[in-house]
């Protein structure tokens, strides 16, 4: 199995992003997804900057993929999409069907986690258009993935999110701007104040969700490190780690140690809990509510 680093979902100052990927270049991760997936207003890095980072990571031996924005609304969003699709060098992760339409037949591409691939028939439609890897939807349980693996088209790899806050929803509304009583069009780029998103608790103070601009994430951190043998047994080709502002390189190192058998599953899970930005959960994998903590019954 390969180790993949998903796209950076938060909005960080340019220098923080550059430093982050310098560290990633030295890490043992195999695949790096790059680019702005959440919001077209975020501008600390332009496409040319992302391409520079991509070249540096490729030179460090990483497989680099450019990710497209998940929610496309405007003509300007489509122009950005076409520029990414036409980059001519790096493969692209399509995060909506508009991206699929632009990429189909042009070059091999990756079907991102937001494409709603829930059955082998849909995967085969995409395979026919050039998909060479698909990322499982976050809410898909193990038993459905097992069925998918039996029927997946030849030559298509499978990637599964194994660590990170769950990307649960997208909206036209910016919840970070709403938090600050600002209109989306004049958001003052408030996301930059929240390097791991804006925590939202229930009225009794329990961590519940994390607001990240137009995206809503789980407060709990989805974690499948205890299931890596199972994932490998199911023929999963890559597991994805989602970037966070602290400890991402340590998380990658821990996954690598577990994958080469230098750590047992329980020890790895215990260590990972110290590095996660919230309590861990794995309910989706076990066909339970996604927020369910590891080991818990429903």
């Amino acid at each position: 199995m390969k180790l993949a680093l998903g796209p950076l979902l938060y909005y960080w100052p340019r220098q923080s992003v550059v430093r982050f990927y310098e560290e990633i270049a030295r890490s043992s991760v195999d695949i790096v997804y790059l680019g702005e997936v959440i919001c077209s207003r975020r501008h600390e890095l332009r496409l040319s900057d992302w391409l520079d980072l991509a070249a540096a990571l490729e030179a460090a031996g990483k497989e680099v993929v450019l990710s497209t924005q998940a929610l496309t609304e405007s003509e300007s969003d489509l122009r950005t999409l076409r520029r990414i699709a036409g980059n001519g060098r790096f493969p692209v992760e399509a995060n909506d069907m508009g991206a699929v339409n632009v990429l189909a037949g042009a070059a091999p591409f990756i079907a991102g986690p937001h494409l709603n691939v829930y059955n082998p028939h849909t995967l085969s439609v995409l395979a026919g258009l050039g998909v060479r890897r698909w990322v499982m939807p976050v809410e898909m349980p193990r038993h459905v993935l097992e069925d998918m693996q039996h029927a997946r088209p030849a030559g298509v790899e499978t990637e599964v999110l194994a660590f990170g806050r769950l990307p649960l929803a997208f909206s036209a509304r910016c919840f970070t701007a709403r938090r600050n009583n600002l209109p989306k069009d004049d958001c003052r780029f408030s996301c930059i104040d929240h390097p791991d998103g804006l925590p939202l608790d229930t009225l009794e103070g329990a961590p519940f969700l994390v607001l990240n601009g137009i995206q809503t994430q789980s407060a709990h951190v989805h974690c499948l490190i205890a299931d890596l043998d199972d994932l490998a047994g199911l023929g999963v080709d890559a597991v994805r780690i989602s970037p966070q502002s602290r400890h991402t390189a340590d998380v990658i190192a821990l996954f690598r140690q577990r994958m080469i058998g230098a750590l047992d599953a329980a020890a790895a899970a215990r260590e990972l809990e110290q590095l996660a930005p919230g309590a861990t959960c794995d309910g989706y994998w076990r066909a339970l509510p996604g927020m369910t903590p590891p080991g818990n019954a429903p």
């Binding site: 649960l168 929803a169 509304r173 969700l209 509510p289 996604g290």
Partner: peptide, 17 residues
């Protein structure tokens, strides 16, 4: 308020989406 077809909030809490 979420983009339809791209919301897993309900299954995160209840298991049904």
């Amino acid at each position: 308020v979420m983009v339809e077809g791209r919301c897993a909030l309900s299954s995160y809490v209840t298991g049904e989406s």
